[in-house]
Design a protein around this nucleic acid. Structure first.
Lengths: 209, 209
DNA sequence: GTCTATAAAAGGATAGAC
DNA sequence: GTCTATCCTTTTATAGAC
């Protein structure tokens, strides 16, 4: 199932679009890397654009099993899950010498005027990512101050990740990523009711759950 | 001075590289938009790459007068300056229907494997931007808790801006930008020693100065 | 410095045999 | 489904007259 020509084209495209970008990856590049002939590609896809759509669909549909499940294996604390996910991106940066981390983010900024279908796919990916974080924040329940907009905060986690990746990539230095995550962690610490850590009299002064 | 062919080429390239991206802007596009003939372009620049370098140099060298000075006109409070700058990016998003905001950030993610010279220019721009914010944070002095790493926080402002622009652009919705800035503002409020303005429960939970 | 014409290569996509 | 050969367009860049 994983070795069909179609699958090989998609996984090759995932790799090359991430490494070189969509525009800088030529059809010839794809054919050579996937060891597929021109006729085969156009047998499965109307063109390069539709191959990109297939790639984006895979990223979104398999986010749970390829990204979230591995990152969250053995982790139950919902806040910790959030920072484990960011740690996953950090590892991607380190493994690729500070170059690759979020393939969809790169594509989103590369494609300046994508058609609505492409944009919908990019947006759907971001929304799915944010929803996963949102789930963690809901799970955190009363540990998070009631006044905090949970969906907005989930978006802010994505904001931090994407902005941090951009800088780390530009400088080829994961330190930029780390310092951004440090500040996000600090922000979370300030937002969390870690009631047990507070002195009893302060704890009692806090508003109810 | 501003009307030489060379200047016209650079300003046209600034515009097109921002709107369409570097790769998707062809030399023919540039020639047509700048109303310049091929021979003239190659008289001033060895090629398209060097034109990009000239563009990046302008962005960096004129950051103060074209970006910071207008944003900070009439503003003296250093923390307010930071959020005025972000407001400038918001306005760019609104004026372009959520498409354009930070030209250098877009280029940084579009160019996956730029040569060292290009990367240096991109990094230098980010550094100059961050330095400006860093200056505000230093100016804020004791209002900011001493434990806060000011340079890291300045980078975090850039992180937020770039990540927020990416999402706003993808969704063509400035709301994504606004919510990110709201959280950054909230974070700043928690970091600032304007204790009287803090919510009571936070005030109580904070360590003594 | 600027012009037109054009080279030389790379781009996406197609045709038609197997 | 896959193959080779090829079409047509666009690309960056150059040549040489003015």
């Amino acid at each position: 199932m994983l070795h069909t020509t179609r699958q090989r084209l998609i996984s090759t495209a995932m790799q090359l679009f991430h490494e070189k970008g969509y525009t800088s990856t030529s059809v010839a590049d794809l054919l050579k890397a996937a060891d597929v002939s021109s006729g085969s590609l156009y047998n499965f896809f109307p063109g390069k654009r539709e191959l990109l759509l297939a790639v984006l669909e895979v990223y979104r549909n398999r986010m749970r099993e390829t990204l979230l499940d591995p990152a969250w294996r053995g982790v139950s604390d919902p806040i910790e899950k959030i920072f484990r996910l960011l740690e996953t991106y950090r590892e991607m940066l380190v493994e690729t010498d500070g170059i690759y981390a979020c393939p969809v983010g790169s594509l989103a900024l590369e494609l300046h005027a994508p058609d609505p279908t492409i944009r919908d796919q990019l947006g759907a990916y971001f929304t799915a990512w944010t929803d996963a974080i949102h789930g963690c924040l809901i799970e955190a329940g009363s540990r998070l101050r009631v006044s905090v907009d949970r969906l907005g905060l989930a978006e802010f986690v994505l904001t931090t990740m994407e902005g941090a990746v951009m800088q780390a990539r530009t400088f080829r230095d994961v330190g930029y990523f780390d310092r951004a995550v440090d500040h996000l962690r600090n922000y979370f610490d300030l937002l969390l009711y870690d009631r047990a850590a507070l002195p009893a009299h302060v704890r009692q002064a806090l508003p109810g759950r």
